[in-house]
């Protein structure tokens, strides 16, 4: 039973890995400056970000301005996780009610 189960997970892992490696066949070569990822959206960040946001650090400019909504979501994720942990673990530490 247990070996069978491990075999199944192994098969799933190998299928996943094979699929991913199959996908790399058409990928642009590593470090290619003209790959779609480096030439479609991102050049405008490099040429424009400093002018528009007055920040020399382009990563910060994109993080906190162009895609600041993602960053809002990111802080919400941290908030969610902290509240989740607080929610799950609080009773164990302290049974009495703090709120009145």
């Amino acid at each position: 039973m247990r070996n069978w189960f491990k075999l199944i997970s192994m098969a799933a892992v190998i299928i996943t890995g094979a699929l991913l490696i199959y996908g790399t066949h058409d990928m642009p070569a590593w470090g290619d400056p003209d790959s779609p990822a480096n030439s479609h959206v991102s050049p405008r960040y490099i040429t424009e970000a400093t002018k528009k946001t007055a920040t020399p650090n382009i990563v910060s400019a994109v993080l906190a301005d162009y895609r600041s909504y993602d960053t809002l979501g990111e802080s919400a994720v941290i908030f969610t996780a902290s509240i989740s942990c607080f929610f799950l673990l609080r009773r164990i530490r302290n049974k009495e009610d703090h709120n009145d």
Partner: peptide, 23 residues
């Protein structure tokens, strides 16, 4: 309308779901 943004909010909903269900 953004694929990566979907991932961020998917994680917000998943994480709050984990917390709520585990209780």
């Amino acid at each position: 309308g953004d694929l990566f943004n979907v991932f961020v909010f998917l994680e917000i909903s998943s994480l709050s779901g984990y917390g709520l269900i585990a209780h």
